[in-house]
């Protein structure tokens, strides 16, 4: 087997590697290069140096989108992971129809973001108008919480599946031993189950944080940044800069924002992975 691998590795590796280069590396490099250019279409770009970056950094809507997004990531990450873990704890007990519940919780994840955004827009606007509060498009705070509710509804089921897998992989012997030693259920949870769950937590945090930053369709469908860019997340802000503004200079500025955005997300994700990985324990 080893011999065969030595001989045939290019057959296994090269096609994927080529696809990776064509589909990811080249567009990525091109994208970074375009951040330094003024262009209308990607085929004829003129190099203009760093001015795109200085204009991107001085754009107040970009600042607002950044803070709004960071707040959104913090709130949604906490809510989704606590929710997902709670549901997972409940659905790993012996309840009748537990698989049916799991399926139901997972299902929202199968619906596209745009569709969800519009459905929740109708639902939330209906509730807001019954409460005689300003509608979503008039109130950035309502837009924020609407987005949090939407994302929780969509993602708790997905994280639940990962947490269930994690919970099920905890050896019964460990839990039993702690019970015999007289640990309360809370102690068992925090001292035994949670440390064993760290790999799942690492994955789930990574997914929710990056999803929170990259969120686009739901943001566009739910509020489209209304009122006046106040409910814009970073990805939508970049999209709007790139396509929503007329004039050749904006494309490059949007591209520069995208590069900044990429650096921020990569940095935060790496820090998070490093921190949570350290807490993972061996069985």
């Amino acid at each position: 087997m080893k011999k065969a691998l030595k001989k045939y590795w290019p057959i296994f590796l090269l096609p994927t590697f080529a696809a990776f280069i064509i589909g990811f590396i080249i567009p990525f490099i091109q994208g970074v290069y375009l951040a330094f250019c003024q262009f209308t279409t990607v085929r004829d770009a003129t190099f203009i140096g760093l001015s795109n970056f200085s204009r991107a950094i001085s754009d107040t809507t970009f600042h607002h989108a950044l803070w709004y997004n960071i707040a959104f990531v913090i709130v949604s990450t906490l809510a989704i992971n606590l929710g997902g873990l709670a549901v997972a704890m409940i659905l790993t007990r012996a309840i009748r129809g537990r698989n049916a519940y799991r399926t139901v919780f997972f299902m929202p994840n199968l619906i596209g973001g745009i569709v969800l955004g519009y459905i929740w827009q109708i639902l939330l606007n209906c509730v807001l108008s019954l409460l005689e509060k300003p509608l979503l498009a008039l109130d950035a705070t309502a837009g924020f919480w609407g987005l949090v509710i939407l994302m929780c509804w969509q993602q708790i089921g997905y994280m639940m599946v990962i947490y269930i897998a994690g919970l099920q992989s905890i050896p019964d012997a460990l839990v039993e031993a702690s019970e015999i030693d007289g640990a309360t259920p809370l102690q068992t949870f925090f001292k035994v189950k949670l440390p064993m769950l760290m790999p799942s937590i690492t994955i789930c945090l990574f997914l929710t944080i990056t999803n929170g930053f990259k969120l686009f369709d739901q943001n566009m469908a739910l509020t489209a940044g209304q009122p006046a860019h106040q409910s814009e997340l970073l990805a939508y802000n970049i999209y709007y800069t790139f396509y929503g503004r007329s004039g050749p200079q904006w494309r490059g500025i949007g591209q520069a924002k995208a590069v900044i955005f990429c650096i921020i997300v990569v940095a935060i994700s790496l820090i998070q992975l490093g921190v949570t990985r350290k807490k993972e324990v061996q069985q």
Binding site: P134, A228, G244
Partner: peptide, 19 residues
């Protein structure tokens, strides 16, 4: 002057309409 001008005007008009 731009689409952005129209969008911001529309947004302000909607805010005014509600209140």
């Amino acid at each position: 002057p731009s689409e952005e001008w129209k969008n911001m005007l529309g947004s302000a008009m909607a805010v005014y309409a509600a209140d």
